[in-house]
Design a binder for these strands. Sequence first.
DNA 1: AGCACGCCGACT
DNA 2: GTCGGCGTGCTC
Length: 734
Amino acid sequence: MSIIRVALDKPLNTLFDYLGPAGVTEQDIGCRVFVPFGKSRMTGVIMEVASYSDISPDKIKQAGQVFRDVPPLPPELLDLFRFCSEYYHHPLGEVVMNGLPIRLRGSQPFFIRTAPIVFQYRLTTKGRAVDISAIPGRSIAKRRLLVKLKESGMIEDGEAKQFSSRTSEAMKEFVGLQWVEEIPLAPPVVSTSPSQETSPLPVLTPAQKNAIDAIVPKMGEFHTWLLHGVTGSGKTEIYLQLISLLLRQARQTLVLVPEINLTPQLELIFRARFPGVRLVSLHSGLNPTERAEGWVQAQHGEAEIILGTRLAVFTPLPRLGMIIVDEEHDLSFKQQEGLRYSARDVAVFRAKRAGIPIVLGSATPSLETYYNAITGRYLLLRLPSRAPDNASLPTVQYIDIGKIKTQEGFSPPVIAALEKGLASNQQSLVFINRRGYAPILLCRACGWTALCHRCSSRLVVHLREKKLRCHHCGHQAEFPSLCPECGNQDIAPFGHGTQRIEAALTRLFPDARIARIDRDSTRRKDSWQRILKDIREQRVDILVGTQILAKGHDFPNLSLVSILNSDASLFSTDFRASERLFAQLMQVAGRAGRSGTPGEVLIQTRFPDHPLYRALYQHDYDALARILLEERKTAHFPPFVYQALLRAEAPAIATTLAFLAKAATLAKAPHQIKVFDPVPAQMARLKGMERAYLLVQSRSRKKLQEFLGNWRTKLDSLPSHKVRWTLDIDPLEF
DNA sequence: AGCACGCCGACT
DNA sequence: GTCGGCGTGCTC
């Protein structure tokens, strides 16, 4: 009699032992299994098969059906899950189930829809024991179905459907009651022709050639490569050539991209370059079935290129030869709820275990990655100039809005540059990282501002809808006509958002074709693709938008980028704000002047001499990185220390802080560990919850991990009524 | 996380 | 007497 240990999607730090169904062997490790749990039933994954259990025999229940519809998760993937569970101090069951496509988490078996799925229905032992009188006499269809099943023991889908129009409904009910087993007949897998490359290869720049020459001899080994190259320096071409090499060796490549609508674009490039190659793209735009299909194709080794967002790092890949993380600095690689993993870091671990190279690409690497590269942990490859024709980098100019007056957010030089662009039929981009009409609704008499009652944030004015909206919780409020505080009528929007800038541009340039691009204008499906098409086909003169514009898209006819106001991030309390602002501005600036025409970047600021702006002026990431690293070193911030947060939230801040204070007393920290005092989170109130955290840091990752392990067991036993808490390892947001 | 059990207050 | 509040404990 064998015991199976099952991972279940429960916030409990343990596996659950069950009596394995007859015939369960070690071969079934990694298979999904349907088991009773408490009063309900659920699907889990068999992590171990054993001959004994420490649980008292009377407690152990019998496991249900083992799903063998898809191959079991390979041991490497189970190892990856175990690593994540340990490193992120998160229950293994949740990690495992989080890694599966939603379609495979349920109690239904799954097959690729290459052909219509044919089901067989077989009466179970339980079903055979059911007496016909258990079904009410009026349910004729059900009665007849049961009789038929008892006669033949098994019927096929088609046959059952002919039987009566109510059959499929009745059958579902029988399956639910476990009288009947639903057995899908696997359709044959369609195989495609072997892959081959056709398009002629572009000429490489010397830097591209150097990079490829460096990586290729080490393709069979684990190395973390940082490919540091400005926008347009040709990182994609390097990815393509490396992938092409792996295709010839019949190995798979996993390409991770940020969570934006960028996947289709890269997919097009890959498909154009490798026609006939089986590429699977795994992103949030897919429905559960499509996602599971792609996942299964990857697992079978049929897909050769797997292109996906952070979740794709958990795809089973039997012939994995390389991992690429594009735009590795992007925040969307870190999941900000539940299992707070960094897909980039998990990918590095995965590559290490698999003994394969991983390439991190960025124009503005995260300081963590950059530090690893300059200290030799990672191998650094630079792509200094722009490909293809060495197009010159855009010129950057600053407009000191402390000295020059602006009207409606625009300084005269920016207006002049926009005019020039219109006159010469060139496109311009106006960047303002704030959607809505105005960020503040202000009473000029008493200073009252509209606040969200569920979050510690201001309500943003959305003029078109005549609403006030909270950008953090989605709460909407009506536009007051009087100040609720003092009754004055003199309340007005203050500050600028994309809608207001769009309105101002319409007044300034009545004949210009203006497109606003932000989350509000691209919310509807396909609207972003439509706007992109308009831009490409020259039906837009001026683009106004938020950071959506900054990411990855080429606008061939864009020559001017204006950045209206980004000073706020210069003096943020968040120690990563400068790094992010620089990355963002580099990206936006990089939109200007591709393919031949030199671009122009105008930045309105009160601090033109700030080191960040000076580095941007010289396109010198390294200069700024050195300054920021120096600051981080003296202030004992990452990457010179490792951090973890104990995050807690409760309806009342006192509850939250009391919990954290209690947690702090449990932290008998060794001397290499520093435990800070509990502090309210930056967004102290969010969706009606009061949030705070406790920061723990150490210069030794190992020591920090040891400490966290001990601490967590103590935290688990702490009574935590009303308080929800989680550990956030390597936090990015505070 | 759910969900049941269980022990004290205000109601038909 | 009972309905129901949520504090505590368990889930293989």
